[in-house]
């Protein structure tokens, strides 16, 4: 190693030293300890007792784990595309030079500022079957449909019906999509105007411009947001936890892996089992992230490449 190179290495390490300490204390050690705990029977107040792979065997045979896993994946697969469409759409609208832009931006960003407790409780109520606001908006439409088709559709009792509870949660999530909107908006502002002007000269329609200019230019941001949403959605915890009062929701329809981990760790004091569950969640996140990176690499358009 050249002396200069050596000096650079030292310099680099000094600059990133806060991260190295954080990485050792809050990532590497906990990860390894988690792996160890997942092989033990462990409640916080006594020493871990080695069990071997028992926790993983139990987990394999635990239908509630599978249910939580299924809910988690379904939630991610439904909620991420929906919120992506909504937030891209909103970002495009918000990028228009329209009067009161700042106010609109604040309105759409506002929900992501609401503390999880308030958000959950507000929606507990919005989704109330007989008197929730959501059903009061839905009912007139259902009445029209029922009148036209002669059907007997009824507004659902969102949070008490195993078939609708997840839908209710997704609605809640869509409302809180503001952070993604802001990031898309920032991405849109990066797109050079000349591209649009050139496209306009070619006589393309607004929709074509969206498809052929906006989307490709926005694709790195979409990729970034989707990756972040995957990581976030798979860890969904606070809102469903409060929405169900710490429980599982009707027919366990609002039980997610993160909730189940929390219950096992801090309600049942099965830290070992909680660690095994948590590592499964980790593997799931890595797997889905890798899939999206693989897929994204092919699709994402990087300018200047």
């Amino acid at each position: 190693m050249m002396p200069g190179e050596h000096r650079n290495l030292i310099k680099g390490l000094v600059f990133i030293s806060p991260w190295i300490v954080g990485f050792l204390a809050f990532n590497l050690y906990p990860l390894i300890a988690s792996i160890w705990f997942s092989l033990c029977d462990y409640s916080v107040l006594s020493q871990p007792v080695f069990l071997g792979v028992q926790n993983y065997v139990d987990l394999w045979h635990d239908p509630v784990f599978w249910k939580a896993l299924r809910n988690t994946v379904v939630f991610a697969l439904v909620a991420i595309p929906l919120s992506s469409f909504l937030s891209i759409g909103l970002a495009v609208l918000l990028n228009q030079p329209i009067a009161g832009q700042g106010i609109y931006r604040t309105i759409f960003f506002l929900p992501s500022l609401v503390p999880a407790i308030s958000l959950a409780i507000l929606w507990q109520w919005m989704l109330n079957g007989p008197m929730g606001l959501v059903n009061n908006l839905v009912r007139p439409f259902l009445n029209i449909i029922n009148a036209v088709c002669g059907s007997h559709l009824q507004a659902p009792d969102w949070l008490n019906d195993p078939n609708f509870a997840l839908g209710g949660l997704i609605l809640t999530g869509l409302w809180g999509t503001g952070q993604a909107v802001v990031i898309y908006l920032a991405g849109l502002q990066e797109i050079p105007l000349e591209l649009y002007e050139a496209a306009e000269l070619d006589g393309t329609s607004a929709w074509q411009r969206f498809l052929h200019v906006t989307l490709p230019m926005l694709s790195p941001v979409i990729f970034f947001n989707v990756l972040m949403s995957i990581i976030g959605a798979l860890q969904t915890f606070a809102v469903p936890y409060i929405l169900t009062g710490g429980g599982d929701g009707p027919g366990r329809s609002l039980l997610f892996l993160a909730t189940y981990i929390y219950q096992n760790a801090f309600d049942y004091w099965n830290m070992g089992y909680a660690s095994a569950l948590a590592l499964c969640l980790f593997v799931l996140i890595i797997a889905l992230s890798l899939v999206s990176v693989r897929y994204g690499e092919k699709k994402v358009h990087y300018s200047g490449r």
């Binding site: 300490v21 050792l24 204390a25 590497l28 050690y29 390894i32 300890a33 160890w36 020493q47 871990p48 007792v49 080695f50």
Partner: peptide, 23 residues
């Protein structure tokens, strides 16, 4: 009863010292 295995405990000591330094 087995206590935390060796590599884990070394890491734990590292982590703790890191925290102590900052504490």
């Amino acid at each position: 009863m087995k206590s935390i295995s060796r590599p884990v405990s070394i890491l734990r000591i590292l982590g703790c010292t890191a925290l102590f330094v900052l504490a």
